[in-house]
Design a protein around this nucleic acid. Sequence first.
DNA 1: TCTTTGTAATTTTTT
DNA 2: ATTACAAAGA
Length: 761
Amino acid sequence: MSSVDVELNTPQAEAVAHVNGPLLVFAGAGSGKTRVITYRVANLIARERIAPYRILAVTFTNKAAGEMKHRLTGLAGEDVVRDLWVGTFHATCARLLRRHGEAIGLTRNFLIYDTQDQKAVVTRVLRELDLDERRYPPRSVLYQIHKEKQEGRGPDEMSPESYVDDAVIKVFRRYEAHMREANAVDFEDLIGHMVRLLEREGEGDAIRRRFSHVLVDEFQDTNAMQYRLVRALVRDHNNICVVGDDDQSIYRWRGADVRNIRYFRRDFPGATVVKLEQNYRSTGNIVRAALGVIAPSPHREPKELWTQNDNGPPIEVMAAADERDEAAFVTGRVLDARKAGASLREIAVFYRVHAQSRVLEEALRIANLPYQIVGGTKFYERAEVKDALAYLRLLANPRSDVDLLRIINTPARGIGTTTVDRLVSFAGSRNQSIHEALEVIDEARDIAAAAQKRLAALRHLLERLRARVEIASPSDVFLEMIEQTGYREALRADNTAESDARLENLAELGGSIREYEASAAAAGEKASLDGFLESVSLQSDIDGLRDEPRVTLMTVHGAKGLEFEYVFLTGMEEDMFPYKSMDERGDEELEEERRLAYVALTRARRHLVLTHTQARQIFGKTRWGAPSRFLRDLPREAIVHKQTRGAKSVPQRFIDRPERPLAPAPWAAASRGGWGAPSAPPAPARPAPSQTPGQRYVDREFFQDDHGGESAPLRRGSRVRHQQFGEGEVRSVVHAAEPAVVAFFPGWGEKKILTRFLRPA
DNA sequence: TCTTTGTAATTTTTT
DNA sequence: ATTACAAAGA
């Protein structure tokens, strides 16, 4: 046995040792997923002698990709990691498309438009088509376009069964034309073009042949096109390993389709399936609580998280009077934790929506507790940074109209909306990009001579700078740009606190360009403006913030993949969590809320506190909320109910889980200021699996023991007999939903077994 | 062209 | 409560 094997449990080792053919790994929360992925890759290289450059590992975020590279560097060394293909879906596609994209009409230096750019294109198209922006909000039109693209449909293939407004189709068509004209792609295009390329003879084969082993992390988050991409990529060899957890699928609203992981077995016949169910992260109470919340979820792949860890302290469910009371309570507990020696780094406060953060922030500030909010306005979304980047992109790719229009009068240079409108229609009438139109601006009759002059001056300015791109380093070009365009001077003249902050942000951008140059040099590549822009457009935020310990505030979505010693989950009221939006909440959405709650609970290592309020101000209105239905799914023995001094006590009916689906009666009694909840329906009782024969997956084992079957008094050292494994010895007792132990069977190794499958030996 | 005022919207987020 | 964004005024 090598040292590698010793560090892995049985299913982990199985996943690591697997080499060829499809492999599906269900990775429960805290089950050592990253370890399995990295060891598996290391194993392919070291033992199976697969060349690193033939292995592709795909993630969803740059952070996850970075983490994977980091961990692999420790295992396999820098040289190996440099040759591996590790990246997000989008970054990987961009990289391949720059090399092979000519075949489908992409030039090497295409731009990637982010959401804001895309929206600007839509807005422009709406105006061109003279459509009312109130009737067709750009945001929602863009959303509809993306929905189609995520399913791989263009304007001409939009699904006829789903009624779509004719106007949207028109906008879609022109949107695509504009993107082509600007030599730009959106995020969906990166995937879509790649699929098209892969499905072609020649180029497709070449790309397919590149990779002999493909791995996809967080597979439950893939959408239809990403799934198609993966299938096309591994068509020849089926050496595909996907890792994920259907219980943690929380991105349905952005196109993710859990069925990709649930139907993997069907689509890749003969797939090996491994389930990582041992949780190394959390206490027994937390694991059981999480199981209680996720168990009622229908269709889930049967799996049972368990842990050998001790039970730990009980989970607290705290009732507060309102959101200020709640925030004060959380702050007090954070202070206690710090007094007890916890680092603020180990403490997180979660909420369902960002709007909840303000009150928490205020309370923490009063208590002088440093905090950081994850997911506020991102660095690269600040106006000044976007402006500067627009200039840089325009230097790299003159045809980018969105960028040109963004900066055409920034800083103010006397080019107003009238001039811009005329310029746009002038370019449109000649079927040219605006940049091309600028070259012949003197032919534009409607544009006043003075305005023509200013436009020409802008053109010359851009040309001067563009000439420098060939010669100077990206960071020098950047400095010359903010100087010569007058951008910096305009901010300096402003001389307000805000303009100071903006100047600082520009300095930081300059710093990140230099950082890019350094990393390019380290990788032996030439730093180019194109290269920098690419790294920016596929990277969302700068996380290299100062390392002072801080309390972390974030939405539950943002928490996925993280873990903390202390977790405070706030706003556990009906209509907050599960969240109630304007439109009707479908069953699917409710199930996603449930999974979201599961994700939240499983972030905590040892201390978990859930808070809910009687009344909450949100969006200027007061909501009276009953405790969340998810609270009643927590196993009673793992939790303790408390209330702050300001809160009234919680009626028992909000604590108990109803035996049978309730008649609506007890809920209907709303009393202002009490725990009335006119809008709160009774939580759906746990589905009785035996009564729903049509379901695909029924977790029978779990439910059968829900009535509390007597378990034999087993302890470490007890001798037991199992039908298949024979006689063995109990190594530890496990805290799972049902009594279980880990036992050692000679010839089989350690196995986790439900107690009811064991007989005393 | 720039500033002010009014109005509507407001889950979750990556790339 | 807050904010973003568009139309109207200086």
